[in-house]
Design a protein around this nucleic acid. Sequence first.
DNA 1: TTGAAAGCGATACCAG
DNA 2: CTGGTATCGCTTTCAA
Lengths: 343, 343
Amino acid sequence: MKKPDKNITVRWLARKANVSVATVSRVLRQPEAVAPQTRERILGLIEKHQFVPDGRAATFSSRRSGLVGLIVPTISNSIYAEFTEAIQNRLQEAGLDLLIANANYSSEIESVIIRRLIESRAEGVILTGYKRDPALYQLLRHYKIPFVVTWSTSPKRTVPAISFDNRAAATEATEMLIKLGHRRIGLICGVTSINDRAAQRLQAYRDVLSRNKIPFDPDLVAERPFEIEASNVAATRLVSLAKPPTALFCANDIQALGALFACQRLKIRVPQDLSIIGFDDLPITRVVNPPLSTVHVPARRMGYAAAEALINAARKNLPVRSETISTELIMRESTRPIRSRTP
Amino acid sequence: MKKPDKNITVRWLARKANVSVATVSRVLRQPEAVAPQTRERILGLIEKHQFVPDGRAATFSSRRSGLVGLIVPTISNSIYAEFTEAIQNRLQEAGLDLLIANANYSSEIESVIIRRLIESRAEGVILTGYKRDPALYQLLRHYKIPFVVTWSTSPKRTVPAISFDNRAAATEATEMLIKLGHRRIGLICGVTSINDRAAQRLQAYRDVLSRNKIPFDPDLVAERPFEIEASNVAATRLVSLAKPPTALFCANDIQALGALFACQRLKIRVPQDLSIIGFDDLPITRVVNPPLSTVHVPARRMGYAAAEALINAARKNLPVRSETISTELIMRESTRPIRSRTP
DNA sequence: TTGAAAGCGATACCAG
DNA sequence: CTGGTATCGCTTTCAA
């Protein structure tokens, strides 16, 4: 049965232009391989009928999806925006599309997303954090989809990671606080059970304390989701303790801001009464008062490098290699030595 | 030629299980239509070989991509994160996937994205802002892809918009400032040439001034990109004017924060010396000091409604209808009557 | 409940 | 430079 389907397709155009589908396909993919005259004629038709080829059919028959998937745990933290942007820029140069997916800190959602990415035969996947069901890594490998972990180093060579070192960075920050004379140091971080970056930073904090013979006090630690209000509340509790901390390490800037604002409300002076160090180096940390000391995270470089690695894997079949990118502790005005505490 | 291809496909599985490809496809799509025994056998094979069907082929032959595209102008403003989340949640219930794309305030990028969405035969598209090349709307219509404009109302019935009214909201905020006795009112907003929401808010501001016989002073207006540092600089200039404003309307909260921090740095008291009203009602506005008066934008409801409309369009073939969602001016502590200006 | 076969829309190889 | 055609992997009638 010949249904005179109205759908515009290469076949339809070919008939209309009195050429073969192959020729139409060519003007789409390699126009220079078609005689100018025929090319123009077909281009005219395409223009006239607003023809947009079916990408699914195209990618399907060419065996390349041209797609790279990125899974972030949240899109509301703008540090991931910078990261994403860098990836997108690099990918675009290589003619690859980026599919941004938000796992919302849920491993269930994440595995659904990974499955979807495999279904769409992505040519690469960028993951956030290392900790997840190993079966997922295996699935990716099984489908020969290059992947790379970011925002966390990886203990296994089979799982390449392009990232900075959370432990090293958090260690540096905590040690700085100790170097400034603080012994009673609070910590606010993400929920470690669903966030291995937070867990690593917490671990680093504990290790530094222990190395400095400072007993670990669970009262000084708050694991909170990344809403600024949650850390605001947590910080309020911390500074209202009978023996409040003299310094606070916040494993990300949003939480550091929440803490800072809590102090302002309670008339606790930062840094005179409490030193605060954040993590991420968001633009806002530079303009808030006082400007926040923080750990600069190389989100852009990390994104760029991850994209680069996947491009090489997808196009040149190169293996993805782990890479560690350095962070930098940036001391601004929210920290000071404990000795000068009294004004 | 029979290439013993290693790719796992329904055909391969069918052979392996001694059934037809149709049956394998059925256990994938409607398992209940297959005899339990055969079903289990095939499910076993699928499990064993980690089979993930090729989604492109699937969507391609079933003529439904199951995809809805969302184009936001930036992902670094977390107001879009809330919006996106709401969309995602609603879509998920309907079994549709969301493809998030970042146009980065560029109309060129946006049209490329729209083209890509058409190529992938998205079943719906959610756009941000109304102003764009009409040809794009036409293209979408031509491919019978339902779409909806958000974050801006639409003057045309052919372009449905599910949004709040930027003018009305900005009018309310500006009028409130006037009601508080302010006559010298500054404005910081986005770059109106690439952001029609900002343009509408600026226009509302001008209209209110004019209605109140307050001359428009270009020196009091700053159009800036959404980086907090840019508004920080702009606000610094505004408040350093020979005749500084007594109130400032910021067309979004990020810029309001930039302004607030500028004031703090310059020891200009908010609200005693300067009243500030923001726009968006980000969570941070509730914890900053002073808590920021702002216009609450119904990002979640808007996202939910937009998703809903597209679902109905895609699945039930219902036309997308325009809808206006109300905003709410929330007065907190960054504003006060001008009369009580002197402490 | 199952199977055979006809697409879906483009690509790409191989001739001519 | 152009055309014919097999193919990609799955879904979907239509019969059996």
